[in-house]
């Protein structure tokens, strides 16, 4: 039980970090082309169908944001 709560705590912490320092997707801009998936050095992005998901492996390198053809990815400083 304790273990479960700890892992939950870290997940939440990580989530906070993503929002504070990671990359966010503007779903109104993304045209689900998969270019960002191809350049991510840690394979953190997945193109599901008509949307992308970024997992906690993201190391905030910003490469995907530079590559996106429409600027749908934004680095949060």
């Amino acid at each position: 039980m304790v273990q479960l709560n700890i892992s939950l705590f870290f997940k939440k912490l990580k989530y906070r970090c993503d929002v504070l320092g990671g990359v966010i997707v503007n779903k109104n801009k993304c045209l689900y082309c998969g270019a960002c998936v191809a350049v991510c050095p840690v394979s953190a992005i997945e193109l599901i169908d008509t949307w992308i998901e970024i997992n906690e492996d993201c190391n905030d390198c910003g490469i995907c944001a530079k590559i996106c053809p429409v600027g749908a990815l934004e680095e949060l400083k």
Binding site: L31, C33, G34, A35, I67, P69, V70
Partner: peptide, 8 residues
């Protein structure tokens, strides 16, 4: 139509 993508 708008199309975007990456070419290796």
């Amino acid at each position: 139509e708008i199309i975007v993508g990456g070419v290796p």
